[in-house]
């Protein structure tokens, strides 16, 4: 299953890299002669409301989807893991400080913060990333902390400490790898969520500026055609699901492998 997932994601990676070769037409070229054309041999996935080729847009959209998904989880994960592990491992005032930071961050309604930040900084993917880094870390932090609390009282950690290993060494060598399992599972889910939340931003009108081919925007803009030209939102939706499945399967597989190692 892990291999299936990996294959799927790698395939999407290849699609992203080879987009110019795979696309049949310019993803942003409008065509007044082919508005809302259903799927055909000429336009495999049909065309949208301004005559753009949906197949080509889906292909090019892969680039942005991977970019948003992968880059969007990295900083939250790094920040969250660091805070969570330190808090759980050391306890005391470190934990207290981390938990207060968490307490201030968690209650901020996610979309509200993103919208506010988008309003402050202006729209764009980069600002979405900033918002994610500011709020997205809490999930990782809570998971990492919970694991670290459990681990810090375990025999092998205590043993390492009595053997004179430094906290840093123990954290990196023993606690981190063991805490990784739930975090990685969560991260693979998070990739999908980050892509989906990005799409939801598009739904609220605050997404990537046109005419950039981005799946979320394509689905959101295709919504009003849901019963007249289903293909506009269906194919990018399908692409999103297939990419999501890829990451989900990788998550499962990784979790299993890490468990065996332990």
């Amino acid at each position: 299953m892990f291999l299936c997932g990996l294959t799927l994601v790698v395939l999407w990676g290849i699609v992203a890299l080879a987009a110019p070769l795979l696309a049949t037409s310019d993803p942003i070229a409008i065509n007044f002669e082919a508005i809302l054309a259903p799927p055909s041999s000429e336009h495999w996935f049909g065309t949208d409301n301004v005559g753009r080729d949906i197949y080509s847009r889906v292909i090019y959209g892969t680039r942005l989807a991977l970019y948003i998904g992968l880059l969007g989880v990295i900083s939250p994960m790094v920040i969250g893991m660091t805070i969570g592990l330190l808090a759980g491992y050391f306890g005391g005032w470190v934990e207290m400080l981390a938990m207060r930071l968490l307490d201030i961050t968690v209650p901020f309604p996610f979309f509200v913060l993103v919208l506010a930040i988008v309003a402050v900084l202006g729209p764009g993917i980069e600002n979405y990333f900033i918002a994610l880094a500011m709020v997205g870390w809490v999930g990782y932090a809570r998971l990492a902390r919970a694991e670290a609390i459990v681990l810090r009282s375990q025999e092998f950690v205590l043993a390492a400490r009595t053997m004179g290993f430094s906290h840093g060494y123990i954290l990196l060598r023993h606690v981190l790898p063991n805490a990784l399992s739930p975090v990685v599972v969560y991260m693979m889910t998070d990739v999908t969520l980050v892509i989906l939340f990005g799409a939801a931003l598009g739904f609220l009108g605050m997404g990537v500026a046109p005419p950039t081919p981005e799946w979320g925007i394509m689905i959101a803009e295709g919504q009003i055609y849901v019963s007249t030209a289903w293909w506009i939102s269906f194919f990018p939706g399908l692409a999103m699901i297939l990419l999501g499945i890829g990451f989900a399967l990788i998550g499962d597989g990784l979790a299993r492998m890490l468990r065996i190692e332990r």
């Binding site: 889910t189 999908t192 969520l193 989906l196 799409a199 939801a200 739904f203 979320g216 689905i219 959101a220 919504q223 939706g237 999103m240 699901i241 297939l242 990419l243 999501g244 499945i245 989900a248 399967l249």
Partner: peptide, 9 residues
């Protein structure tokens, strides 16, 4: 996985 990957809206 399907449920997770479908946009809510």
């Amino acid at each position: 996985v399907l449920g997770l990957a479908v946009p809510v809206f």
